[in-house]
Design a protein around this nucleic acid. Structure first.
Length: 660
DNA sequence: ACTCCAAGACTGATAAGCGA
DNA sequence: TCGCTTATCAGTCTTGGAGT
């Protein structure tokens, strides 16, 4: 019994010593810049299709699995590998307890042999594989080369040149599944369940010796790759093969970096925070995270060993309320020396964040400025500089006015010697021929009279003479669905407005759109927005219910938050503001607790149960539903006249004024 | 938060699939 | 489990057009 105990303790201590020794012995041999440049150049020259291996399908012979853990074994393997044209490669990595993770085993298949190269005991010698991997005449076949190539670069500075990827091939061939075991089953008649594969993948590749099972699994991962490449290439077109060439070249060129940037921090934080990430807490988080990453890297431990990321996120989001948690969160002995520094980082980053937060008012100002800026660029972009109507006159041979036109049109006649210039101001030409019947003002149709009205370059509302925008009295939203007949009817409804009046007119336009939406029961917003509105309203309803029920139990500050939520909700939406005008907030809260009331309220967005298949463009649906299109057009015209009270309307609109 | 409209580009959320 | 890529959807942002 005593012996057994001593033995156990001895084994335990031995194991501990071995493990800690090994873990601390992990070394990384980064690629030099020269290595990279050389490899990139070689990869750049790879622009022809792959040679296609042609080997028969044969099951693996266990005696052909060679475990390599001595230098001489490695050297003789390299000799054989150097003469190969194709090699299959797979890598097993272990990443728990280390910052970067590290390669434990490199499996290389060649002909019918698989070498299992122990990347732990031979760690210093692995770089002798470099010539194989950088040799463009040897095609390296991976399954999912993205990770493997990056790891080879990270651990041994090995950059792969001339890589084929069976996973990418599967993608190119449009297979629904891309796992290696799917291809084994499909092409090689070898079956392995996904569950088993997963357990093996996740087994301890860092421990020695590897079990027979592990060795067999590892060998299988590399064994069929060459055969697979051959058979898949035969199914692919030239273009498909070349697309794989391009893709793998791109992947192999990727330089391995271990920089922790804001983007990465953001991604990590996003994993833990479903809702929006507050810029302040993000700042705190990323500062601390970056610092801890450095320490983790120095000590080559997994960051999770230092701190639970979840805790760090919580801590960052709590700002200084929970600063006392620092000691609890950073309890790992690995960073006991740094506690003071970490506290400092948290403090300063919170201060900095607060300062930025305090500047939010300033930011709001700059937002206003930004808005103004945007408006200015809008004006710059869309206002019409110069004259819209050039009002050149075109006369027919007897001297009567045919129409007004722009220089462009006038020049068309002049260039063809169809007219002569009569006056410079106003620029007038006389045609040398009798124009088409329809264009003749004496015999033509009344519609054409439009052309002989001189059009003024001024805002039809206020008379301003610059910075115009064209304004459509009948919004294009509807007009685009009109039949030709009705499009013709509102042909002259494009008016010149100055920017200011244009903005006002648009507001009134929106109001009428809303009214139409209500009258016709066709929502302006699409399903998504209704859905959003619904969710928002019902989350507010929850607040109302809690407030209503828990006036005594909910802490006062929480009650205030809820109340603020509700108030904001009402203030932010003009329709709701209007709806609850003059009501007491508690009256509103009680009203909102009723589900039916909420449903009623949502009707301003249209039918909440709106089915997606019924969804269509608002404008289109309205136009389809309108009974009297003429009336519809006049409604828009009157809406403009009544709301804008234009003082400088063109004569062509006069008829409309007489209706009422 | 947004001033026309429409199309295309871009984005974020989400899910699925795969690797170790 | 985590990290990564990809696809998709729905929404937002950007861009470019604009006549009678």
């Amino acid at each position: 019994m005593e012996y057994l105990y001593v033995l156990l303790v001895f084994l335990g201590v031995l194991g501990y010593i071995i493990m800690t020794k090994k873990r601390k012995a992990i070394e990384y041999y980064e690629a030099t810049k020269e290595d990279l440049v050389e490899a990139w150049e070689k990869i750049g020259n790879l622009n022809t299709p792959y040679e296609i291996p042609d080997i028969p399908l044969s099951p693996i012979d266990p005696s052909n699995i060679k475990y390599i853990n001595s230098k001489t074994q490695l050297e003789s393997a390299i000799k054989i590998l150097s003469s190969a044209q194709f090699i299959g490669v797979d890598i097993e990595e272990y990443r728990e307890n280390t910052y970067l993770g590290y390669i434990c085993l490199i499996q290389i298949s060649v002909f019918s042999t698989v070498y299992l190269i122990d990347a732990l005991s031979l760690r210093r010698n692995i770089s002798s594989l470099k010539p194989i991997f950088s040799n463009p005449n040897i095609t390296k076949i991976f399954h999912g080369c993205h990770n493997d190539t990056q790891w080879l670069q990270r651990d041994f500075g090995i950059i792969s040149v001339n890589v084929f990827d069976t996973q990418l091939a599967g993608k190119a061939l449009n297979y629904e599944k891309l796992g290696l075991n799917y291809f084994w089953k499909k092409y090689c008649g070898y079956v392995m369940s996904s569950e088993y594969k997963k357990t093996m993948q996740l087994s301890r590749w860092d421990l020695r010796p590897l079990s027979i099972e592990q060795q067999k699994y590892a060998a299988m991962d590399a064994y069929y790759l060459i055969y697979l490449m051959g058979i898949m290439c035969k199914e692919m077109s030239y273009e498909q093969i070349m697309s794989i060439r391009e893709e793998t070249n791109k992947i192999c060129k990727k330089e391995f970096t271990k920089v922790v940037n804001d983007e990465k921090c953001f991604k990590i934080m996003k994993n833990y925070v479903k809702n929006q990430i507050n810029p302040q807490s993000f700042h705190v988080f990323s500062e601390v995270y970056k610092f801890l990453s450095k320490i983790a890297e120095e000590k080559n431990v997994n960051l999770e060993q230092i701190v639970k990321i979840e805790d760090l996120v919580k801590l960052s989001r709590a700002e200084n309320e929970n600063i006392n948690d620092v000691k609890r969160v950073f309890s790992s002995p690995l960073i006991s020396d740094y506690i003071g520094k970490i506290e400092n980082i948290i403090k300063t980053s919170i201060e900095k964040a607060k300062k930025n937060f305090g500047e939010e008012k300033g930011e709001a100002k700059s937002r206003k400025e930004k808005k103004q800026e945007r408006y200015n660029t809008f004006l710059k972009k869309f206002t019409i500089s110069g004259k819209v109507f050039e009002n050149c006159q075109i006369l027919i041979p007897d001297g009567t006015l045919l129409c007004y036109a722009n220089h462009k049109k006038v020049n068309w006649y002049l260039e063809r010697d169809l007219a002569e210039v009569i006056r410079e101001d106003p620029y007038t030409i006389k045609l040398k021929f009798e124009p088409n019947y329809k264009m003749n003002p004496r015999t033509g149709e009344g519609q054409r009279m439009f052309y002989i009205k001189e059009k003024k370059n001024e805002c039809v509302v206020c008379g301003r003479a610059d910075g115009f925008l064209r304004y459509r009295v009948v919004p294009l939203l509807y007009r685009q669905f009109f039949t030709e007949e009705y499009k013709d009817m509102c042909r002259h409804d494009v008016l010149l407005l100055c920017a200011n009046c244009h903005e006002n007119a648009n507001k009134h336009c929106d109001e009428l759109k809303k009214k139409i939406s209500k009258d016709y029961e066709i929502p302006l917003h699409n399903f998504g927005e209704i859905h959003k509105a619904k969710e928002k309203l019902f989350s507010i309803r929850k607040n109302c219910i809690s407030l209503n029920k828990g006036r005594k139990t909910i802490p006062e500050n929480r009650q205030e938050v809820l109340l603020k939520n509700i108030r904001n909700f009402i203030d932010e939406n003009p329709s709701y503001t209007e709806h609850f005008k003059g009501q007491d907030i508690w009256e509103i809260i009680i009203w909102l607790c009723n589900e039916d009331n909420c449903k009623e309220l949502l009707k301003i967005y249209g039918d909440v149960n709106w089915k997606v298949e019924n969804y269509d463009n608002h404008g289109k649906l309205v136009v389809e539903k309108v009974k009297d299109m003429k009336e519809f057009i006049i409604m828009w015209k009157w809406n403009f006249i009544e709301k804008m009270n234009p003082q400088y309307m063109p004569d062509s609109w006069k008829e409309l004024f007489h209706i009422n």
